[in-house]
Every structure is written in C-alpha cells, then in structure tokens.
Design a protein around this nucleic acid. Structure first.
Length: 354
DNA sequence: AAGGCGGGGAA
DNA sequence: TTCCCAGCCTT
C-alpha cells in the first residue's frame, strides 16, 4: 500500500468524532478552522459549539456587534481571530451577497484566512485539491521524509507544501487532509510518539535514523518580556448601585478591543507611594475626590510572549473620570469581553450582585 | 524573514 | 520550567 492509502486506512480506524466533521457547511468549517488556529482540539470544541449555537449562520454573525463576538471568544486568546471573523462575515455579506465564496483565490483574500485555512476550507467544504500544511503536517513530513532544516521557515514550508500536493489524494482531498492532520495529532504526536505501533515506521526517516525526538527542528526561540500593570479599580458609591470604570483597549497591543480598568504601566516594579506621585496617577484622579481602600496581591499572568505582573488598587471615588473611561453598573460587568487576567480578578474579588 | 499576538495542557 | 497547539498579520 502507498503512504496515502495507509494514512486513509489508519484514519478510518482511529478518527475522533468531532462536531465539525459532521458538516459540509462552509460557514461552520470556517468557524472551526479559525477557532482551531494555534488552539488544541479539546479546548476548541466547546467554543465551537457555543459559537455556532449563538451565531447559527453567516448572516447572524454579520449583524452581531463585535463586542458580542469577542465575549464569546473570551478566554480563547488571539482575539484578532474574532475581530477578523466578524469583519469577514460582513465582507461576505456585502461583496458576495452572504454566499460564502467557493474558489481558493477568493477565500484566501478574506481577512484572517491564510494559506493553511484557505486550503482547509476549499478541501473540506468544496472538495477541491488543496493540501493542508500546518503543525501536524509539518511534523509528520519532517520526520517521515527527513526534512532536517527548521520547519518554521518559508523555504521548508514551501518544500513540504510541494510534497503534500504530490501525495494529496485528488479524489478525496477533504478526507485525506483530515486524515493526515489526525495522524499527526494522534500517532505522530509531538512528544513521545509510540513509533512501535506506527503503520509507517518502516519508511520513516526519523524512526529509522533515531531522530524522532529531534524532528521537526525549530529555529525561532521566542523570549518573554516583563510588563508591570497597575490597575485602578475605581468604585463609585454615590448611586444606589455600585458603578465601576472600564476602558476599551483600542491600541495595537494585547487584548485589542477587550475591556480592562484604568491602567498605569511602569517599566519596572513600583511601590504604591511612588505610583501615587506619577503624572499618570495625578491626571487620572484630577478633580475628583478619592479614597484609597486596599491593594490586591500581585497577579502573575503568563502569555507566550509576555509576563504580566499586575496589581489592583481599590479606590472609592466621587466625581467623574475623563472620557476614555466609561462608567458602568457593576452588575453589568459580565456583559463586557475582558482578558482572562481581569476575569480571574473579578471572580476572586467582585460579587456580581452588588 | 522576524516579531507580535493568548491561553492552556502535558511532560 | 519548557514545549507547542488545525496560524495570521504587519513591518
């Protein structure tokens, strides 16, 4: 049997029952592919089910507010995916009358859809012969065919794309693509794969040369940067209900278009007395009466490229803060999309029915 | 080509 | 701790 036949047979016996494998609806395929970018299947399943339950089709997504899309995305990370999906839904409504485009070139041009996702949608939804090349496929090809150069370069990715196209089963591109990704995820997994039971170990470069744990090679070493966040949690008591100030993060930074609190960021750790002497602090509370109540412990929030060291300052205030901040009833805070860090803080410190 | 963009789970 | 996940966009 040829290698694609072995993969297909392995897939028939070992595939998981995943919700997006039960549909040919390009909208649902698209949603699943975006959610799964840099995201584990097990984590993505619940988000996918909730997403298609709330936005049942492309038209519903297009007419939703971006904020509601982000709220559904909360906790999943890489929020540009949600922003781009929402924008793309509207683009498809206006440019394609709400009909999902069916050619590779049209799909590839859509915001948030790169080379991999365009291949995935065209093959899975429309059964067109485009090979998927993502993490699983790169790993499998690097090991099986012995691509020893780093796979996170354009050069090797192109070589593997060519190889993938060569072996693609043009009769069953959708099934074949699913199969090879599933094989990479389950059999040719990143750590400690069980090569003894692998149906392809005979022809596998890495297995035969004892390099399974060295492939695929990676070149990029991403380093983390430390950031120091001082969140000012202004509570307003002069109404019947407590209110709180939020800010929408609109700059090109982490968590774009999500909400957090008025923030002072410093280059290093800073004690409270020094913080209250900074210009940022003075401008923030200028013209209002405030009373510092307490300070939270240090929160260490780890992203793949940043380490956020955050502290929350509880401050009672009367009078108004200036415009970039919006005053909202504390009981409504759950409606706003917030980063995981803020979500964690809220569950620890704020009871929603105050 | 390189860097930014989240968060979680497994070893 | 380290790795890496059905990647994409901007510079």
């Amino acid at each position: 049997m040829s290698f694609p036949e072995i993969i297909l047979e392995w897939y028939r016996l070992n595939k998981r029952d995943l919700p997006w494998r039960r549909t040919k609806d390009p909208y649902r395929i698209w949603v699943s592919e975006i959610i799964l970018q840099q995201t584990r299947i097990e984590l993505g399943i619940d988000y996918y089910l909730r997403f298609i339950r709330k936005f049942k089709n492309l038209a519903e997504l297009a007419k939703a507010d971006e904020e509601d899309v982000l709220k559904l995305w909360q906790g999943l990370g890489y929020y540009s995916r949600a922003r781009n999906m929402h924008a793309t839904a509207r683009e498809i409504v206006s440019r394609y009358h709400g009909q999902f485009p069916e050619t590779f070139d049209e799909i590839r041009k859509l915001k948030g859809i790169g080379e991999y996702t365009a291949c995935a949608i065209t093959s899975l939804a429309f059964n067109l012969p485009y090979p998927v090349v993502e993490g699983n496929v790169l790993r499998f090809f690097a090991r099986y065919f012995g691509f020893t150069d780093p796979v996170d370069t354009g050069k090797v990715k192109k070589e593997i794309y060519r190889k993938a196209l060569q072996y693609l089963d043009a009769n069953l591109p959708g099934t074949y693509n699913q199969a090879i990704m599933e094989f990479g995820a389950l059999q040719c997994r990143p750590g400690n794969p069980d090569c003894r039971i692998c149906p392809l170990n005979k022809g596998c470069y890495a297995f035969q040369t004892g390099n399974v744990d060295k492939l695929p090679a990676k070149s990029k070493v991403q380093k983390q940067r430390k950031r120091y966040f001082h969140y000012l949690v202004f509570i307003v008591h002069n109404n019947k209900r407590k209110h709180i100030y939020l800010r929408k993060r609109e700059s090109d930074d982490i968590w774009k278009n999500l909400y957090d609190f008025p923030l002072i960021e410093t280059n290093g750790p800073m004690a409270q007395d020094r913080l209250m002497l900074t210009n940022e602090w003075k401008q923030m509370v200028e013209g209002s009466k405030f009373h510092f109540r307490k300070r939270s412990d240090l929160y260490k929030h780890i992203l793949s490229h940043q380490i956020i060291l955050a502290r929350f300052y509880f401050i009672d205030i009367s009078g108004k803060l200036k415009s970039p901040f919006s005053l909202i009833p504390l009981k409504d805070i759950g409606k706003y999309p917030v980063p995981r860090l803020i979500e964690d803080f809220l569950t620890n410190n704020i009871s929603q029915n105050e």
